[in-house]
Each structure stands twice: as structure tokens, then as C-alpha cells.
């Protein structure tokens, strides 16, 4: 069986199925020319990494990160269609209108996460990327799995604001950690971050009203929830059962 250039490329890119890979492995062992081609591919990949990966470590210019701070967006009383729709849905739960930037929260949050979280999430609380999804790890993951909103003790790096069940049936928790607030939902054994926002002071020395970020999270939670927040017994029960839905 001869190995086509397509097969060899797919082999080098890790795109071959197990049995095909074994075939190419055997062919490479028998043919030094093929082995050299695979090695050349690796060398090229390394050269490209050496060139492009340093960009990941470079500081992001302010003009880019500034796009992602919530206060840079339109005034809160402008409501777009999606926010309007969300608000309509939400009126069944409470009379709260989401500011426009909140609707883009998930996107801005995912982009800004390094900026918002950088240095502000205390005690090793951190965030990982699993298949393009942001999930809690470290201290944040532990806090989400163990702490109860109903039994809050001061001085913990992570505050649990509330626990609820989403309309998709997952357990979700609103939390605060330092100046970062968010909502995480238990999916596939991870706490997936569905919302993250910063409670940091607005630019120009204006401070957001104290507690307004908590209110944002509460409003977003109400919007997602299938019912009321869990009562202390239900919350404890859900925790002791490992947050399985």
C-alpha cells in the first residue's frame, strides 16, 4: 500500500484514525524518505510556533482590551432586540431590565477573561478552557462544588450568591470572587462559566453603585432559572449528591 501525500499530511497533523495511523507507522519504518518528510513537517511546525507563539505572551494593547470593558458600551437604558426579548421572558420572574452590554456579557467575558481575572481572582481561583468552553478550576472549582449560599462565612475568597436549576436542568451557581462575578453551571462534570463580569470601578473615576453587579447576576440568574433559587435544604441536598441533575 502506498502512502499518498494527503495521508502523510493527515498523519503528521494527527488527523488519521487509529488503523490508518498504524499503516503509516509501518510505511515510515520501512521508508527513510517518508520518515524524513514527517520530520520536516515537525520542523516546520516548530518554526511556525517559534514565530507566532510569542504573540500570545505579549501584552494586549489597551485599545483592544478597552473594547471589552462593559462601561465602554452604550448607556444602560438602550435595549436591543435580544435584550428586549430576554427582558420580556424575564418579566415573569421580576421587573428588571438588563443593560444592553449585559447581553454581550458572555462574549466580552470570554475575551476579556484574562484581563478581568488576571490577578483579581484570589487564592488560585482560575479558569480553564475545555474544548472552547470556559470552566472553573482550582480554588473557584472547589468553592463552587463545596460552599453553600445558605451557609456563608466571611473571609472566603469566593462568595456564593445563590444556587438554582437552569431551564436546561443543570445546577447553576452565582458567585463572586474579588471584583469578579459570574454564573457557573454544572455540565459534564465541570462548572461551565456562562457569565462573567467585573465589578471594578468604571473609567473616569465613576464608581458603579455598590451591589449593582450582584443585582446584575441575580437578574441574569432569574432569566436562566427554571424556578426559584434553591432553598437551603435543596442546595445542601444537591451538593451532597455531587450536583448531578
Amino acid at each position: 500500500m502506498s502512502i499518498t501525500p494527503e495521508m502523510l499530511a493527515a498523519y503528521a497533523d494527527g488527523e488519521l484514525k487509529l488503523e490508518e495511523r498504524a499503516e503509516v507507522d509501518a510505511a515510515i519504518a520501512a521508508d527513510p524518505l517518508l520518515a524524513r518528510q514527517v520530520a520536516a513537517h515537525r520542523t516546520l511546525r516548530e518554526a511556525l510556533s517559534a514565530r507566532f507563539d510569542p504573540i500570545l505572551e505579549m501584552p494586549v494593547p489597551d485599545r483592544l482590551s478597552a473594547l471589552l470593558t462593559p462601561t465602554a458600551q452604550e448607556p444602560a437604558n438602550v435595549v436591543d432586540i435580544a435584550a428586549g426579548r430576554a427582558a420580556k421572558r424575564q418579566r415573569e420572574y421580576a421587573r428588571v431590565t438588563l443593560p444592553r452590554w449585559a447581553a454581550g456579557g458572555a462574549i466580552a467575558a470570554s475575551l476579556a477573561i484574562g484581563l478581568v481575572i488576571g490577578g483579581k481572582l484570589p487564592s488560585g481561583g482560575s479558569i480553564r478552557n475545555v474544548d472552547g468552553q470556559l470552566v472553573a478550576s482550582g480554588g473557584l472549582e472547589t468553592a463552587l462544588s463545596t460552599q453553600l449560599a445558605s451557609a456563608q462565612s466571611d473571609g472566603k475568597p469566593v462568595r456564593i450568591l445563590l444556587s438554582f436549576k437552569s431551564d436546561k436542568g443543570h445546577y447553576c451557581r452565582g458567585f463572586g470572587a474579588g471584583a469578579t462575578l459570574g454564573i457557573a453551571c454544572r455540565e459534564d462534570g465541570n462548572w461551565r462559566l456562562v457569565r462573567i463580569q467585573s465589578d471594578s470601578p468604571a473609567t473616569g473615576g465613576e464608581y458603579r453603585q455598590a451591589g449593582s453587579a450582584d443585582a446584575d447576576i441575580m437578574a441574569a440568574a432569574q432569566n436562566m432559572a427554571s424556578g426559584a433559587a434553591l432553598d437551603p435544604d435543596a442546595e445542601r441536598g444537591a451538593r451532597d449528591a455531587g450536583w448531578h441533575n
Partner: peptide
């Protein structure tokens, strides 16, 4: 993992320059 640095890397590669 922030997405922004990755976007910058891809953009620099496409446009052949960081600026």
C-alpha cells in the same frame, strides 16, 4: 485562557504584521 491573544496571533499571521 484568554481568546484575545489568540485572535491577535491569527490576525498577525493573516495580515503579515502585528500592527
Amino acid at each position: 485562557m484568554a481568546l484575545l491573544p489568540r485572535l491577535r496571533r491569527f490576525a498577525a499571521g493573516l495580515t503579515r504584521g502585528l500592527a
